[in-house]
Amino acid sequence: MSFPTQRELVTALAVLIFAIAADGVAYVFDKPFLANSIYLALMYALAGLAWNILAGFTGLVSFGHAVFFGLGAYATMIAMLHKIPAVLGILLAGGVGFLAAVLLAPIWLRLKSHWFTLATIATAEILKLSFIVWPAVGGASGLQAPIAEPGEELYYLYFRGAYLYVFIAAVLVAIEVVVLWSILRGPIGYKLQAIREDEDAAMALAIDPLKYKFFALAISGFFTGLAGSLYTIRYRFIDPFTVFDLISVSTYIALVGIVGGIYTFLGPIIGSFIVVPAAEYVRSTLMSIASRYAALHGVVLGAVLLIVSLMAPEGVVERVRAKMVVWSKVVKVVREWVVERS
């Protein structure tokens, strides 16, 4: 039931093409807000898909993916500050995310269920605190990207507005979709899901849980690191409070997966395109009418998470699919009835 289908692959790529088209429309009609929302949705989709290979397919629920996101963001920033081209900086972010996952695996993977979750939260907090007191990475005041001189725009990926950045993000998500889709359909997808369902039973079938969890974690770290680099190249300024944040990073990444549905491949993408633009819209309107928009934002986020986990724990994608099954049955019955009549 939860193996990625052909249709999901097509849908995912269609969403990406649609995102690029919408970005074009935003450019023509000069709608920077729309383009920015699309960009953020792609960034969270990138991280959400990576998160879900752990949560949905392996059963390891992280609320600390800010670890990889933040390290990725810093990796790209530091690369740019060393005059390394931003494209290499993005790759480096993936590498750092991967490395962090490999190094954390011996600790995290000893833990199960909520202990794993708690350890991820604690690790992100430890990293945040360490970066705050570490002068070499700018400490609490953060880092600012170098100003691109005229002619260096491509070198440092420095563009006006979100329009061109959307292309970069869409390409990264497309690569991720294809890679994860083919992995999860193959033997690894079966073994990961077996581990998620019952680790003891999986072991009896000659599956080494540690090996496959390690693999899932490393891939997850890699793509989440990439998502962090997307933050850096677009916003040009980072500090530990922002990129290691429990709410706007770790929770958001989990949220897009949970809203979309963790037992579907497509879930995080759909979830991201529902949650992020809506949240951005709410945030921008709140900012102009309420002085405490940040708190209100947190409350709204909590309400959404609570409603989804109580009313639609299977996520939006499964919901829609179930509805479609019902509808196609209704259509069939009606059609048969009509045929009978004529």
Binding site: V61, F63, H114, I262, R292, A295, G298, L305, P313
Partner: peptide, 28 residues
């Protein structure tokens, strides 16, 4: 009796609601 993810998500949602509800009322 919900799956583990829903349990985490629900109590985590309570965390957000209380923490930011308090902030909304009493300020940061």
């Amino acid at each position: 009796d919900a799956p583990f993810v829903s349990q985490i998500a629900a109590t985590f949602a309570l965390l957000l609601l209380i923490r930011y509800g308090v902030e909304l009322v009493a300020g940061p």
